[in-house]
Write a protein that binds this DNA or RNA. Structure first.
Lengths: 207, 207
DNA sequence: GTCTATAGAATGATAGAC
DNA sequence: GTCTATCATTCTATAGAC
């Protein structure tokens, strides 16, 4: 009994993991409406009906994909250390964001798709968690400005620039690869990109 | 006879214009697969069959939408004046890109969707026109570096940063509005954004 | 927990009257 | 040039055998 239950639990966990991973890819490529349960089922190598066994509706599956991505976003958000110097805090935050762009390009694309579409699902997160997080970081950046540690720039636009630039390497990876002899960036190129982004932004705000 | 022909031509032009405009919106919001001819027809306030009278297939309509957007892209590309100083060339280019983000947010989103999906339609443009344009600008930026006019940064990553940052204001306009008390940026805020982006990038590369 | 078969709605596209 | 009716296909979701 216990063995069977354990086995079933394991199978369940594996299938859930496979489905969520493939769903992330398909949603990234086609958006919510454009993605089909059939395409996700094919990618996961499962009959379509099995998807509905694990996730009652397409929307429920999409929500879980979004939840996972938001967890990763929170992880990056934490790396913006409000007690560090501007150099340390921003360098770490940018590096973390670049690592996420490389490790989770599909998640980033799903997020981008969501926002482009007016954030029908994640609007709650934007209004609450993201909004509050942004306010605390704006306060920190303003303190840096008062202390003369950086130039008097608009904190919001600094954050937008960091988000835009780092996420661009995930969301527009196809365009970047095309301009890189049709090859994805290699290790050295990712390092170089991270250093370039960090250097220009830090110097650009006088840090 | 001539009157009728003229009238028909006028109606045709008007309808084409309306359909293309609404199609841009719907494709921006739902991507190619997610957009439906019915949704575009409803937005244009026309029966679905009329869309197929003007555009044989959904793909043909999408291609024309993409063509229009690429024309705008070319316009921005021209504003990167290779004979100007770094300050002049980049200031003008960034301003132009910001103006486009404000004037054509849907076009920018369609473009973003296309690239996220692996550029199935615009791959030719990326390989030819964009690639060649990028090479010429990289050469110019490298000359600036040799002449000591700017810091020795990787030209590609400078271009990516400009694209990412300026297009972010169109593609992520919903998120930006959410963090702006649920209001789109007003005139003054757009000016401030443009100035911030320009200042940080120019100072960031030592121009 | 798996999978075939299928219901019921929506989709791209067309025919044909006006 | 417009628009209703409709076809063939595909979609989400479910029923029910194993």
């Amino acid at each position: 009994m216990q063995v069977n239950t354990a086995k079933k639990t394991r199978i369940r966990q594996e299938n859930l993991s496979i489905i969520l991973g493939k769903a992330e890819q398909i949603f990234a490529e086609f958006g919510f409406k454009g993605a089909t349960m059939q395409a996700i089922a094919d990618a996961a190598d499962l009959p379509k009906a099995n998807l509905h066994y694990y996730f009652p509706t397409k929307l429920a599956l999409y929500r879980q994909v979004i939840e996972r991505i938001f967890t990763i976003w929170l992880e990056a958000a934490d790396s913006f250390d409000t007690s560090a110097t501007p150099q340390e805090a921003l360098t770490r935050y940018i590096r973390k964001k670049m690592e996420i762009s490389r490790a989770h390009p599909y998640g980033s694309k799903v997020w981008a798709n969501e926002v482009i579409q007016g954030a029908p699902i994640i609007q709650d997160y934007l209004q609450t968690t993201l909004n509050e997080w942004t306010d605390t970081r704006i306060a920190v950046i303003n303190r840096w400005i008062e202390q003369g540690l950086i130039d008097p720039i608009d904190p919001r636009h600094l954050l937008y620039m960091i988000w835009a630039t780092t996420q661009h390497y995930a969301d527009f990876s196809h365009q970047i690869a095309t301009l890189n002899d049709n090859r994805p960036l290699d290790d050295a190129q990712w390092q170089r990109a991270t250093r370039n982004v960090t250097d220009v932004i830090l110097k650009g705000i006088g840090a």
